[in-house]
Design a protein around this nucleic acid. Structure first.
Length: 990
DNA sequence: TTGGTATTGATTTTT
DNA sequence: TCAATACCAA
């Protein structure tokens, strides 16, 4: 058997081995899309004998291209992998333009205009033309025209009057780019397609073209694909119309049809088995996407068990929402006995700006996280300054970069001076830089005489840039970027400048500059090995490739990578005790193609999703679909019922997204987090294909939980006043009125114990939630609890109904006897399992009067506390607020009849219905403790203890995160052109 | 004319 | 939280 085909199902195999030269693979979420595509690449190399440098593989995002490289390296080896022409459309185009751009009159050493440059240029011309068009709107419309391949002239021909205003801006923008020798993102594609259309010999070597996420291609990218394949006409595309979420970037789902029309011999293969998600999640997601009636029906078959229903949680405010996520993450982590680690959780957001509250809540609670998407490393002001110096040094014609740094650090060059200079340069038809040089050397003068101070400042600037250029000329190797950064920071006394300007966080800002240096160093090290030659395009007879000064070339490439990558991977500082395990917070867009065991999608209200400014609401629905289908085992959607800030309703009330109509939420969702008893946990383990945790391990975490249920808020999304009376007085905990006061509350307790602080829960209790100062209302009986959640019973019934057929597919065990007493019986069984089932040495429900350290939530009277191990001593403030052990009575949602794979419970002795097992969690802890010394679950132990102990280190991480402020964590992306290959070599090889 | 301080305003998604 | 604007003192 061909190892390439190992582990592929029938449809995947068919796709991989298809002899059709034009192949479309339609691959819904979790169907092994990337696996199939990489296998196809490997198959083409090994069975068709193509050389890797003759295969082009286009992805859409950098992350996707990195993943593809990694997978291919495993499949075909690094040697071959590194020679593939693989990358984002933009980066591949850049490579072609660098080598062959001269054929279409592109000037050497062109730079890439990032969105900041674009915005600045457009802003300037709008001002000059006195246009009333908004900058952002103009930017978007110009980009759209370009994505359709329309030049300013082309637009003006078919334009209406109002469009003509834009055409002027468009023209002006284009000439500004040309003047600075810049290409914007659209130009990269556009000019490359010009190149290949006029000079197809540049790609005459290409044997096969593969495109990932084809539904996200725009017209130009589609044309590029065809041009790449103009010789061989062998194309494989993988895509899913349901996951098209880049329409705002002119992506056209129509390209699928267009391609079929263009190539009559198109073969279409459908993948429909989902290997990622629980059946319950798929059902819910499928129902969301099927609301789109224009969409062709497409099957999506679950291969996993039904699992537990997804959650749609209502909460009072965005802040409560964030705190709830903290609670649920901790609850999941603790109650699954080390099965789930921090890196198994993801929070997916419609907008990156939603992250702030979540980040602060996580920071306070000691949840380590990393933010993906949102603000980019290379966009930080301090980094940007250095980069702009480098850009000017690289190419003095880059007027926008020059304008950005002309008075940074301050050189007494103010607005007026700049106005004189720019208008003078324009009149003289000179680049700004040349004009400035002429002025200070006395060859020219401005309309109005410049101030002495300003002139002196300009003089210093020119000297610095000239010196930098000199330095660059002297440096004829790949170290140029690093050399230049060092030189510039030194000459600017940049660190002192940062201290002066940003006294609050000058250290992190300086650290960012250091990080930039580090990146440059890495590039240099990589290129010195000359491995990068393999990244070059293959030589083609008869077409000359353009050569450049090595140092300049290295700098240009560095800057291009920066513009195209905009994020970098920070190497994990694996210092002792630093957890590398982090919760991912990401935009939904940036999460495409990825998966996590547990996914949270907060803010599912109208205006957020669909976004209030969204143009196509179908796309927003697909966005929700994409977000939901990232989840493997647990999916949480949530919505704050009030949005105090920008809410459109009078009191800031929100409305649930129309994508989740009542008939859907009633049948496919539960209202609160699932009870995480044994069977649920086992189902999670099975879906993740991880070993089931032992019951011991599952007990271990419980004592640190304030509750084993998701019950701090009512299912309707109010704070539960019966338990948290004092907090309801000020229900916008959200705005965190006076943290100091609360902190002092906490500090009434003994300052104590590494243990306390190490749980990471002290922090949370003290700041995240408002604890009632007195214990009067702390106790809630389970009966009260049930009374408060009447709907749960029916909900669980719905779940069992909807899950029956899914059961059948996977039932390993005989079904529980169904019938009248079924619900109770099941519940009892699962609960008693949970607290003392056959997984442990104890078969009986635990002896009630055996003294055991209780979990905090169900605190025993203080007399019992004396028997706690010294280190687990609980401060009086915390122990006092709940005085009685809370009996746990099975409630509706603990029913999980879907998970018949948990076979242990059938053997469990369940009490007679009359005497329900009123087991306190105290006992449950006892079981856990007792069996810690036993043998049960020994093999799972390392995992479990890691998950648990890390709480200690979470805390420390948090502290550093809090000090640094939010979003200091560097993103996980890495620019391409081999940076990641180097990483791989280092980590993988060593 | 500059540069500091205060106020206000604003925040889709990515290459 | 950050950035752009507005105003005032030098």
């Amino acid at each position: 058997m061909d190892p390439i085909l190992d582990g592929l199902n029938h449809a995947q195999r068919e796709a991989v081995t298809s002899s059709g030269s034009i192949l479309q693979v339609l691959a819904p979420p979790g169907s092994g899309k990337t696996k199939t595509l990489t296998a196809r690449v490997a198959y083409l190399l090994s069975h068709h004998g193509y050389q890797p440098q003759d295969v082009i593989c286009c992805t859409f995002t950098i992350k996707a291209s990195r993943e593809m490289r990694e997978r291919l390296a495993n499949l075909i080896g690094e040697k071959l992998e590194s020679r593939l022409i693989l990358g984002t459309f933009h980066s591949i185009c850049r490579r072609y333009l660098v080598k062959y751009g001269y054929l279409i009159g592109l000037r050497k050493g062109f730079g890439i205009a990032d969105s900041d440059d674009t915005r600045a240029i457009i802003k300037r011309t709008i001002k000059r033309l006195n246009s009333s068009i908004e900058v952002k709107a103009a930017q978007g419309r110009i980009s759209r025209h370009k994505a359709h391949g329309l030049s300013p002239d082309a637009v003006s021909q078919r334009a209406k009057a109002e469009e003509l205003e834009l055409v002027d801006i468009y023209r002006d923008y284009q000439s500004a780019l040309a003047a600075s020798n810049l290409l914007d993102y659209d130009d990269l594609l556009l000019r490359c397609s010009d190149l290949l259309r006029d000079h197809p010999q540049c790609v005459s070597n290409v044997q096969a073209v593969l495109v990932d996420e084809f539904q996200d291609t725009n017209i130009i990218q589609y044309e590029l694909m065809n041009l790449f394949a103009s010789k061989s006409r062998r194309i494989t595309i993988v895509g899913d119309p349901d996951q098209s979420i880049y329409g705002f970037r002119s992506a056209e789902i129509k390209n699928l049809k267009r391609m079929q029309g263009r190539y009559s011999n198109t073969t279409v293969v459908l993948l429909e088995d989902n290997y990622r998600s629980a059946g319950s999640i798929l059902n819910a997601a499928q129902e969301v996407i099927e609301q789109d009636e224009a969409r062709p029906a497409k099957a999506l078959q679950a291969t996993h068990t039904f699992g537990t229903l997804p959650v749609l949680r209502r909460l009072p405010t965005p802040n409560a929402e964030a705190q709830w996520m903290v609670l649920e993450i901790k609850r999941c982590a603790a109650m699954t006995g080390g099965l789930l680690r921090m890196s198994d959780f993801a929070v997916l957001l419609r907008s990156a700006s939603l992250s702030t509250q979540i980040e602060t809540a996580f920071g306070r609670a000691g949840i380590p996280y990393k933010m993906v998407g949102g603000r980019k490393f290379f966009d930080r002001t301090e980094v940007k300054i250095i980069l702009n110096y480098m850009r000017v040094a690289n190419h003095t014609g880059h007027s926008d970069a020059l304008l950005n740094i002309v008075n940074v650090p301050p050189r007494r060059i103010g607005d007026e001076t700049i106005r004189q200079l720019t208008s003078g340069a324009e009149q003289a038809k000179l680049p700004l830089w040349d004009f400035i040089k002429d002025v200070i050397q006395g060859r020219r003068s401005t309309e109005k005489k410049l101030q002495k101070a300003a002139e002196q400042g300009l003089c210093n600037l020119v000297k610095l840039i000239e010196a930098s250029r000199q330095k660059l000329q002297e440096c004829e190797d790949a170290s140029a970027p690093r050399v230049l950064i060092e030189f510039i920071t030194e000459r600017l006394s940049f660190q002192e400048y940062l201290i002066r300007t940003y006294p609050l966080d000058e250290d992190t800002r300086w650290a960012n500059v250091k990080e930039l240096m580090h990146q440059a160093t890495e590039v240099a090290a990589f290129e010195e090995e000359e491995v990068d030659k393999e990244m070059d395009l293959p030589e083609i007879e008869g077409v000359e490739q353009q050569q450049t000064h090595a140092g300049e070339e290295a700098l240009t490439r560095f800057l291009a990578n920066v513009a195209l990558a905009t994020e970098i991977t920070k190497e994990e500082d694996n210092k002792e005790g630093t957890p590398t395990e982090k919760v991912t917070i990401s935009t939904i867009h940036a999460a495409k193609g990825l998966e996590w065991p547990v996914v949270f999608v907060p803010a599912v209200y109208n205006g957020s999703i669909p976004h209030s400014r969204a143009e196509v609401i179908e796309e927003e629905r697909r966005l929700l679909y994409v977000a939901m289908t990232r989840a493997q085992a647990l999916l949480y959607l949530s919505v704050p019922i009030r949005q105090p800030r920008l809410g459109e309703g009078e009191d800031g009330a929100t409305t649930l997204t129309p994508f989740l109509p009542p008939k859907l939420t009633k049948t496919r969702f539960r209202q609160t987090g699932p009870s995480l008893h044994e069977k649920v946990v086992y189902a999670i383990a099975d879906i993740l294909r991880r070993p089931r945790p032992s019951l011991d391990d599952m007990y271990k975490g419980l004592e640190f939980l304030p509750s084993t249920l998701d019950d701090r808020w009512t299912p309707e999304g109010e704070e539960d006043r019966s338990k948290f009376e004092s907090t309801s007085a000020s229900h916008d905990v959200s705005d965190e009125p006076n943290p100091k006061r609360r902190r002092s509350d906490m500090n009434q307790g003994p300052k104590t114990t590494t243990y306390m602080s190490s749980t990471g829960y002290t922090m949370n209790d003290s700041t995240g939630f408002t604890l009632p100062p007195t214990a009067t209302t702390g106790f809630t009986s389970a009966r009260d609890h049930i009374a408060a959640y009447p709907q749960l019973t029916s909900e669980s019934a719905a779940e069992s109904a909807s899950s029956t057929h899914a059961d059948a597919t996977r039932a390993i065990e005989p079904k529980p006897s169904s019938g009248a007493g079924r619900k109770d019986g099941l519940t009892q069984a699962s609960i008693s399992n949970f607290f003392g089932g056959p997984g442990t040495q104890k078969r009986e429900p635990v002896v009630p009067n055996r003294p055991q350290p209780p979990p905090r939530r169900y605190e025993l009277p203080t007399s019992q506390n004396q028997r706690l191990p010294a280190k687990t001593n609980v401060p009086p403030t915390l122990s006092s607020h709940r005085v009685q052990p809370r009996p746990l009575i099975p409630t509706g949602p603990t029913l999980e009849p879907a998970n018949t794979s948990g076979y242990t419970w059938l053997a469990t002795p369940s009490g007679p219905p009359a005497s329900r097992p009123r087991i306190t969690v105290t006992q449950e802890r006892g079981v856990g403790n007792a069996s810690t010394n036993g043998t049960a679950g020994a093999e799972v132990k390392p995992e479990a203890s890691r998950g648990f102990q890390s709480a200690t280190t979470f805390h420390t991480t948090t502290m550093s995160m809090v000090q640094q402020g939010p979003r200091r964590t560097l993103g996980i992306r890495r620019s391409m052109n081999g940076w990641q290959d180097r990483m791989k070599r280092e980590s993988g090889g060593g």
